[in-house]
Measured scan of single mutants.
Amino acid sequence: TEDEKKIQELLKRANGDVSKAEKLAQSQGNEELARRLREYANK
Rank of each mutant, 00 (worst) to 15 (best):
Thr1Asp: 14
Glu2Tyr: 11
Glu2Lys: 07
Glu2Phe: 12
Asp3Phe: 15
Asp3Arg: 07
Glu4Ile: 14
Glu4Asp: 12
Lys5Trp: 13
Lys6Ala: 14
Lys6Trp: 13
Ile7Ser: 01
Ile7Met: 11
Gln8His: 11
Gln8Trp: 12
Gln8Ser: 08
Glu9Gln: 05
Leu10Glu: 03
Leu10Pro: 00
Leu10Phe: 09
Leu11Ala: 01
Leu11His: 02
Leu11Asp: 02
Leu11Arg: 02
Leu11Val: 07
Lys12Asn: 12
Arg13Met: 15
Arg13His: 11
Arg13Leu: 15
Arg13Cys: 15
Arg13Tyr: 11
Arg13Val: 13
Ala14Phe: 14
Asn15His: 10
Gly16Thr: 01
Gly16Leu: 03
Gly16Tyr: 10
Val18Trp: 15
Val18Asn: 02
Ser19Asp: 14
Ser19His: 12
Lys20Ile: 14
Ala21Glu: 01
Ala21Ser: 01
Ala21Pro: 00
Ala21Arg: 01
Ala21Phe: 01
Glu22Ile: 15
Glu22Asp: 02
Glu22Ala: 14
Lys23Thr: 07
Leu24Trp: 08
Leu24Arg: 03
Leu24Lys: 03
Ala25Asp: 01
Ala25Lys: 00
Ala25Leu: 10
Gln26Asn: 06
Ser27Gly: 08
Ser27Ala: 13
Gln28Pro: 02
Gly29Tyr: 08
Asn30Arg: 06
Asn30Glu: 11
Glu31Ser: 08
Glu31Thr: 09
Glu31Ile: 11
Glu31Asn: 09
Glu31Ala: 09
Glu31Phe: 14
Glu31Cys: 13
Glu31Tyr: 13
Glu32Tyr: 07
Leu33Asp: 03
Ala34Ser: 05
Ala34Met: 06
Ala34Asp: 00
Ala34Tyr: 02
Arg35His: 07
Arg36Cys: 08
Arg36Val: 06
Leu37His: 00
Leu37Pro: 00
Leu37Met: 06
Leu37Ala: 01
Arg38Tyr: 03
Arg38Lys: 08
Arg38Thr: 04
Glu39Trp: 02
Tyr40Trp: 11
Tyr40Ser: 07
Ala41Arg: 08
Ala41Phe: 13
Ala41Cys: 14
Ala41Trp: 14
Ala41Leu: 14
Asn42Thr: 12
Asn42Val: 08
Asn42Asp: 14
Lys43Cys: 11
Lys43Asn: 13
Lys43Thr: 14
